[in-house]
């Protein structure tokens, strides 16, 4: 009899456990492995990080609004906006800029051709100018102009017969490149051994780079008329 009583007790425990499980099993239920749970955890963490960054953005924007409100109280919100706009225009290349930098002069070589040598070797090509400009960019140039044309994000440097086309305008040599940045770095980007400018000089072209404490780079003058661009509403922080 005591055995039966004992079995009854244990069966009660099994019943209890089953009841607990059945309570959980209400509704649609299937086994979820730990891996899936981990994956979801990762997704949730990512979402949390995003929420945090959005909160930061919100804080920043609130700060900005507070700043503008303060300006408004002082009565010169226009000045603050103008200052901000000028900053954007300067980085977009729509304003003339001034600062220390380097002035590069690029011209065809004047040495005698060796017998049978291709005269192209001594001419300045669009690709030469392009490489020089790229070298200046690598050296940290903040604003570049070529023969008075500002190099902006949509500027082309293209071959046009004996001339070079930039910003849809044709220029012949000499090509004068002005760049604002650290003058020593910029000069080194043209003159240092192994650079493209040094290579051109060795071939026989005229390459000259002079540093200056004050280089003036003009503004981009063409009308920028975007046809295909669309601003995405959800803008990242500038």
């Amino acid at each position: 009899m005591s055995n039966k009583y004992y079995i009854f007790m244990m069966a009660c425990i099994v019943g209890l456990l089953m009841a607990f499980t059945l309570k959980n099993a209400s509704g649609e239920y299937r086994i979820v492995p730990f891996k899936v749970i981990n994956d979801y955890k990762k997704v949730i963490e990512k979402e949390h990080a995003e929420i945090k960054s959005i909160r930061n953005l919100l804080d920043e924007t609130t700060e900005k609004i507070e700043y503008f409100k303060g300006e408004q109280a002082e009565g010169d919100v226009g000045d603050a906006l103008k200052k901000e706009l000028d900053g954007y225009r300067a980085s977009a290349g729509l304003m003339a800029l001034e600062g220390p930098g380097v002035l590069v002069i690029l011209s065809d070589g004047d040495r005698e051709l060796i017998d049978g040598e291709d005269p192209n070797n001594l001419l300045v090509h669009d690709i030469d100018v392009l490489n020089i400009v790229n070298g200046l960019k690598i050296a940290g140039a903040e604003a570049i102009s070529l023969n008075g044309q500002r190099v902006v994000s949509i500027s082309e440097i293209n071959c046009a017969g004996p001339t070079i086309k930039i910003n849809d305008r044709v220029y012949s040599q000499p090509y004068i490149i002005k760049a604002i940045g650290n003058p020593d770095y910029l000069r080194a980007a043209i003159k240092a051994p192994g650079t493209y400018g040094n290579l051109l000089k060795q071939v026989g072209l005229f390459v000259e780079a002079n540093t200056s404490v004050s280089i003036t780079v003009p503004a981009y003058e063409e009308q920028i008329d975007y046809k295909y661009l669309k601003v995405i509403e959800r803008s990242e922080k500038p």
């Binding site: 069966a11 009660c12 099994v14 019943g15 209890l16 009841a19």
Partner: peptide
Amino acid sequence: IIAFIGIIVGLGIGFYLPITF
């Protein structure tokens, strides 16, 4: 039979108790 009765009793108690895993 005692085992089945035990399980049924256990189920009853389990559903009655406000415990969930």
